[in-house]
Design a protein around this nucleic acid. Structure first.
Length: 627
RNA sequence: GCCGACGUAGCUCAGCUGGUAGAGCACUUCACUCGUAAUGAAGGGGUCCCCGGUUCGAGUCCGGGCGUCGGCUCCA
């Protein structure tokens, strides 16, 4: 047989040759450093036979930044962790231990709970294993054999995995530790130069909260100590960009214990908020949306009718009032439907686009709160479009266009990745309804030529949706904009319009938020820009620093000259150097130092970051006008 | 909600085995009148998250609660 190497040359091999055989045929050094085989994007264990004619790329320890090569290293590291834990904690039961983007984890059921301070001990044990050295051996076994083995070892989680496993079952053994595993794994532990256990967490078996909660140990591993250090430095940098830290630091917002999950917005934070609100208002008007306002508090009767009560009762804030149970609205749609129903609608009025950025409340689980990114009180740039079936496509296309415009304006288009969510188990409507609405959304996103992932079963109970996600500083994804096609709620709330045939029809309802929630969007903006906002949303755009007391008047005049911008004069009794430093720390885009040498003909302008220039006021105006 | 960690001045943090709190920055005042990332000095500032318990005595030990952080679950 033969395989094709990356340089397109062909390598002749005996039938049944493995990846390792191929590496040996090329050279002993390559064989020694080989980590895994990649073929057409698929990864394969070195110990497995190659296919005739297959293109083959052998990754080595030198591909230390390759995600697949890293995953193999980390997967093997997870096995070392399990071996160490088994030795240190007799009676522990092992579950699963995969690599993840930033490292790996392994889930255990400990006889006695362990604590974070136990991690160093486990880490030492792993280091001992590394010092001794480990080789991985792979074997294939029959399901019955595998099951027998884990029954004997009293490993119920492994038994369950064997029972539900598909395809051939393989074992990997290092030292005296054998694990059920699909692989691939390293040949031996030599390439593992840095392992660090990072945290401890509870995690439900198979991700289901009805199952037992296991103890998950997180760790990470690299092909070099320097890579680990670089990773830790990156985490440190992300910590500096954290909006929960920058928010209070830049005087934008803060939280209070007496209202968890609801931000208190400071004047400077409101500048950013209002910049987004102004943009929203302006564009909504331009794009034919009608601003409306609906109540904050509703009889729960409404939520029962809409279907929300059955699906999200535990997340709705309730207010008992006499005999009646009221609720703070968790969303705007039912209110907008009542508005739609307030008079007999004609097809001539459609599409009808209601927009409202009202305050919403959702009683989110305590453990899920996360600054502005997961809050209990928030405002969506919400809108509900009522339209006929023929109009649905155009409306959705227009929403994509609008979304692209907004994300471009804010400089975050590249951050967004899309997801199409299809029918969930718990849902309203018939399969035919869902076939139809899912098809429409899929066609729309395909028409945009946008890359997206399909999230089966993740749709809303009333319809499929397209969500746009952005990552925070640590790379955790958050749902931002959303477009949802709803063929159910209008029926439940009795929305109809008169068609040209003089008969009543049910409108389609498209729910959409483009920023998502203002809170979350601002949170992501803060982390994305590290607090150094683009000029047009910066809370303070220009700071004027008079060199001495004699220059105060001139500084104030300059501020008044630039009255259309947010300009502050810093005439504190501090050195110029000090005031510049403070302006830099506050991440103000422009600083103008004004002293004896300055005039309208020549201003000393310093940009955020330190770049300096002398230019006349007129030129500065021109420059600012472009931002 | 669940697992683990944490909660001391506005912020960042120190406070050993229990003996009624400390630094830097910030703030106030005074002096300096200043040219592109920290001028100096003095001063004020604490329900040590809350409630209960142990103890002669609790920031410190124990129990409960709240909040925050890292995960899990959830996220219309």
């Amino acid at each position: 047989m033969k395989v094709v190497l990356p340089d397109r040359s062909e390598l002749e091999l005996p039938d049944g040759a493995t990846g390792l055989d191929a590496a040996r045929a090329i050279g002993p050094k390559l064989a020694e450093q080989a980590v895994l085989v990649r073929s057409n994007g698929r990864v394969q264990d070195l110990r497995l036979p190659l296919e005739d004619g297959q293109p083959v790329q052998i990754l080595t320890t030198r591909d230390k930044d390759d995600p697949d090569a890293l995953a193999v290293l980390r997967h093997s590291s997870a096995h070392l962790l399990a071996e160490a834990v088994r030795r240190l904690y007799p009676g522990v039961k092992i579950a699963i231990g995969p690599p993840i983007e930033t490292g790996f984890y392994y889930d255990f059921e400990f006889p006695e709970p362990i604590r974070e301070e136990d991690l160093p001990r486990i880490e030492e044990e792993i280091d001992r294993e590394l010092a001794e050295g480990r080789e991985w051996r792979r074997e294939e076994v029959s399901p019955a054999e595998a099951k027998q083995r884990f029954l004997e070892e009293n490993e119920p989680y492994k038994v369950e995995l064997v029972d539900t496993a598909e395809g051939p079952i393989s074992f990997y053994t290092q030292g005296d530790f054998t694990d059920l595993c699909r692989g691939p794994h390293l040949q031996n532990s030599k390439p593992i130069k840095a392992v660090k256990l990072t945290s401890l967490a509870g995690a439900y078996w198979r991700g289901d909260e009805h199952n037992k909660q296991l103890t998950r140990i997180y760790g990470t591993a690299f092909y070099s100590k320097e890579d680990l250090d670089a990773y830790l430095a990156k985490i440190e940098d992300a910590r500096r960009r954290d909006h929960r830290r920058l928010g209070p630091e830049l005087d934008l917002f803060h939280f209070e214990e007496v209202s968890p999950g609801s931000a208190l917005w400071h004047p400077k934070g409101m500048v950013i908020w209002n910049a987004l609100e102004d943009l929203r208002r302006e564009e909504n008007a331009r794009r034919g949306y009608l601003e409306v306002k609906t109540p904050l508090v509703w009889d729960v009767e409404l939520w029962k009718r809409s279907g929300h009560w059955d699906n999200y009762r535990e997340n709705i804030f309730q207010i008992p009032y006499g005999e009646t149970l009221y609720a703070l609205k968790p969303m705007n749609c039912p209110g907008h439907m009542l508005l739609f129903n307030s008079k007999l609608r004609s097809y001539r009025e459609l599409p009808l686009r209601f927009a409202e950025a009202a305050v919403l409340h959702r009683d989110e689980p305590t453990g899920s709160l996360h600054g502005l990114l997961r809050a209990r009180q928030f405002s969506q740039d919400d809108a509900h479009v009522f339209c006929t079936e023929e109009l649905v496509q155009d409306e959705i296309d227009a929403m994509f266009d609008y979304l692209g415009y907004l994300y471009d304006r804010l400089g975050v288009r590249d951050l967004a990745h899309a997801e199409l969510s299809t029918r969930p188990d718990k849902r309203l409507g018939t399969d035919a309804d869902w076939d139809h609405t899912e098809r429409i959304l899929r066609a729309a996103i395909d028409r945009m030529g946008m890359r997206y992932r399909v999230a089966e079963g993740e749709g809303a109970f009333y319809g499929p949706k397209i969500d746009f996600f952005m990552d925070d500083a640590l790379g955790r994804p958050w749902q931002m904009g959303t477009i949802q096609l709803d063929g159910q709620q209008p029926a439940r709330l009795g929305c109809t319009y008169m068609g040209s045939d003089n008969r009543e029809h049910m409108p389609y309802l498209i729910h959409r938020a483009l920023f998502g929630t203002l809170e979350r969007f601002i949170g992501i903006l803060i982390e994305h820009y590290g607090g150094a906002f683009p000029f047009w949303i910066a809370p303070v755009q220009v700071r004027v620093i008079p060199v001495g007391a004699d220059h105060r008047v001139a500084a104030e005049q300059l501020r008044d000259e630039l009255a259309e911008y947010r300009v502050e004069v810093d005439d504190r009794d501090e050195t110029v150097g000090r005031r510049i430093r403070d302006a830099e720390l506050e991440k103000i885009p422009y600083v103008i130092v004004y002293g004896d040498k300055e005039s309208d003909e020549s201003l000393a302008v310093r940009q955020r970051g330190g770049e300096q220039a002398n230019l006349p006021l007129a030129r500065l105006r021109e420059e600012l006008a472009t931002l």
